[in-house]
């Protein structure tokens, strides 16, 4: 065993040095890399991550912004290319043919799939403290029994869309101790909900989706004066926009915040 230890260390260091230039062909893996990997190890991310909508901080200058084309990555000669379940598949296939190491990172639509996604990422990136911490936090939250439903909630997203029982957002609400009124009404996936239905359902908590810093008529419903009383009584929770395009980053945090919100609502009542 003692003899094997230096060998393991050597292998780990080889893996670490071998993956010093990582490229991503997917918006979510872009975000995961930017958040959890040292910038000098990132060779390229997609151009989407540089847009105002997704950029959180200035991007390091050396990072090349790709548009999902194989030829762009060829000249960068990355050690590892991360690709999502959908999109840029043609480029990924071409890079594989050319002998590049391409890793598929599955998309996640539930808490269980999130754990799998983080595990898949850990498998290819090797030891990574923030990644492991996030995975363990998620696993811990999953292991806990869901809180008993003591309050009701309804999600009102852009274009009057709400989320049903088959969605990650529903799982988060349920685990935080909220009854998702859309799911109770039979919605399984996304469904349109009018303002009238929101008022008639009288949820204890109105859950809005982020990403509305720029004007869009799609967000007109949440700005309607009829919802003002929810804002006045602090019965609104805003889901971060990251939850929609890369839930691994924020799911655990959102679950904790929602649980806190439910407790504060219960205390008010």
């Amino acid at each position: 065993m003692k003899k094997a230890f230096p060998l393991v260390l050597l292998l780990l260091s080889i893996q670490a040095t071998a993956q010093n230039r990582i490229a991503s062909l997917n918006l979510c893996t872009d975000q995961l890399l930017l958040n959890w990997i040292a910038p000098e190890r990132i060779a390229s991310i997609t151009w989407l991550s540089a847009t105002d909508q997704y950029r959180k901080a200035p991007l390091p200058e050396h990072i090349y912004l790709n548009r999902g084309r194989a030829e762009e990555l060829l000249r960068l000669d990355p050690d590892l290319v991360l690709v999502g379940q959908y999109g840029a598949q043609r480029a990924a296939g071409r890079l594989r043919q050319l002998g590049f190491e391409v890793a598929d990172i599955p998309d996640a639509y539930s808490l269980e799939q999130l754990s799998e996604q983080l595990q898949a990422l850990e498998n290819v990136l090797g030891e990574n403290a923030p990644l492991r911490k996030q995975r363990q936090l998620l696993q811990k939250l999953l292991a806990q029994p869901p809180a008993p439903e003591t309050a009701s909630a309804l999600i009102l997203s852009a274009n009057n869309i709400t989320y049903g029982s088959g969605m990650l957002e529903h799982q988060l609400l349920e685990r935080a101790g909220f009854e998702n009124l859309a799911a109770a009404d039979g919605a399984e996936q996304l469904r349109r909900v009018s303002l009238e239905e929101v008022i008639a359902a009288q949820p204890d908590l109105l859950v809005l989706y982020g990403g509305d810093k720029d004007f869009a008529l799609a967000h007109l419903a949440e700005r309607h004066p009829v919802l003002q009383r929810y804002f006045d009584s602090d019965r609104v929770f805003k889901l971060p926009s990251e939850l929609s395009f890369c839930p691994a980053l924020v799911a655990a945090e959102v679950l904790q915040q929602l649980t806190e919100k439910r407790k504060s609502l219960a205390a008010k009542q």
Partner: peptide
């Protein structure tokens, strides 16, 4: 070219 996510959809409106 509007910074909104829903820009193209809103043309219809």
């Amino acid at each position: 070219y509007a910074p909104s996510m829903f820009a193209m959809q809103e043309i219809v409106f």
